[in-house]
Simulated assay, not measured.
Amino acid sequence: MVHSDQEDRMTLDVYRGQAHDRARTWTALTPDERRRRATEAAALKDPDTLWSLTEAHLTLHAASGVLTSRHTLTSYRAGIRAFLHHATHRAWSILRPTADDVQAWIAEMLTQGRAIATVRVRVAAAAALYRALRWAGATAAHPFEDAVVPKDRRHGLEKNAPYTADQVDLAVAAASAHPTRASELRALLLVLAHAGLRIDEALHLRWEDVHLDPDSARLTVQSGKGRRSRSVPASPRLRAALSAYRILPRTRAHRGDFIFPYRTWRGAARHVRPLFEHAQEPGGFRGFHALRKAMGSRLYQQLGDFAAVAEVLGHADINTTRGYVRIGEERARRAIDSW
């Protein structure tokens, strides 16, 4: 008999196994049949079949392979649907697009006001589709090989500024007033804003990763990026919130030993978004990453050490951490204040 905690540990492996099994629907075919099905799907602009083909190729041949994150797969699937919608509207031949077609699509997305980051993800998704079509032998086209997407030269804080400490506190206060999820939402907000976890890391946090001893309170974080793990100190407020949440009775909504019941960031956002709207924050909810940036920005202001902040946040490249703060402005302010 498999105990519930063992079942939870198997969840990610089951998902990976399912992805591998789905890939077999394509690898089990003869090369001629694979090419026929891929060609037919491209002619029909069939989003489900073309996504199935792309997922199979990503699972078998992408750098992360079967470890490709669910978030990446979800983003790519949406990107491929957007590409196919555009190709249908413009009456493109999927198997014979031109570089001008691709560049016109990019220009149209930018003209519509799509964020450069969104355009980049959609282009990456469409490029993955064509790698899969070439793998299936349906085309030899490389339409995205020379595609140009402008660089976003805005500072990271302009694209998505971190919440201030006051804004976080207002949201936490709104969470504390929630009629049924107060402890849960308060704990989630502080895991993101005080420990700086990515939302995917927070949703995969287990109670065995939480150490609440007052002298060494910390979280052991299993990162989906590079499959690294790191230890993050827990603030007194976070420790108190997790302690209060931990003693609550478990419900069927909870996923075994996972701390939070949400399976996806969308599920979590559905409950977190109203907290910021209730707090009447300008612009409302700006996403979970603004909470992570709040932690990184606040920590840098206290430490003045990018390497230390990068280690806590799990950044492989310290330049990523630099996008969390405006060093020049802060240093100039301190210098000018002393004049």
Rank of each mutant, 00 (worst) to 15 (best):
residue 2 V to M: 12
residue 3 H to V: 13
residue 18 Q to K: 14
residue 28 A to W: 13
residue 33 E to A: 15
residue 34 R to A: 14
residue 35 R to P: 02
residue 35 R to F: 05
residue 37 R to K: 14
residue 38 A to S: 05
residue 38 A to F: 09
residue 38 A to T: 03
residue 44 L to F: 10
residue 54 T to I: 10
residue 55 E to A: 14
residue 56 A to V: 03
residue 56 A to D: 08
residue 60 L to E: 06
residue 68 T to M: 03
residue 72 T to A: 06
residue 78 A to W: 05
residue 83 F to N: 07
residue 85 H to W: 04
residue 88 T to Y: 03
residue 88 T to Q: 11
residue 91 A to W: 09
residue 92 W to A: 15
residue 93 S to C: 06
residue 96 R to S: 06
residue 98 T to K: 13
residue 103 Q to N: 07
residue 105 W to S: 06
residue 107 A to D: 10
residue 109 M to T: 04
residue 112 Q to S: 14
residue 112 Q to M: 09
residue 115 A to R: 13
residue 117 A to G: 13
residue 119 V to Q: 05
residue 122 R to A: 05
residue 140 A to I: 07
residue 140 A to G: 09
residue 152 D to P: 15
residue 161 A to T: 09
residue 161 A to L: 05
residue 174 A to G: 01
residue 177 A to S: 02
residue 177 A to Q: 06
residue 186 R to Q: 07
residue 192 L to M: 02
residue 196 G to A: 01
residue 197 L to V: 01
residue 199 I to N: 00
residue 204 H to A: 07
residue 208 E to D: 11
residue 210 V to L: 03
residue 211 H to F: 00
residue 212 L to D: 04
residue 219 L to H: 01
residue 228 R to M: 05
residue 228 R to F: 03
residue 229 S to D: 09
residue 233 P to L: 10
residue 234 A to K: 06
residue 239 R to F: 05
residue 242 L to T: 09
residue 245 Y to I: 01
residue 251 T to K: 09
residue 252 R to C: 02
residue 255 R to I: 07
residue 260 F to I: 02
residue 262 Y to W: 10
residue 264 T to Q: 04
residue 268 A to M: 05
residue 276 F to I: 12
residue 279 A to T: 14
residue 294 A to P: 00
residue 299 L to H: 14
residue 301 Q to H: 13
residue 314 G to M: 09
residue 317 D to E: 12
residue 321 T to Y: 13
residue 322 R to W: 09
residue 330 E to Q: 11
residue 333 R to F: 12
residue 335 A to N: 08
residue 338 S to G: 04
residue 339 W to D: 08
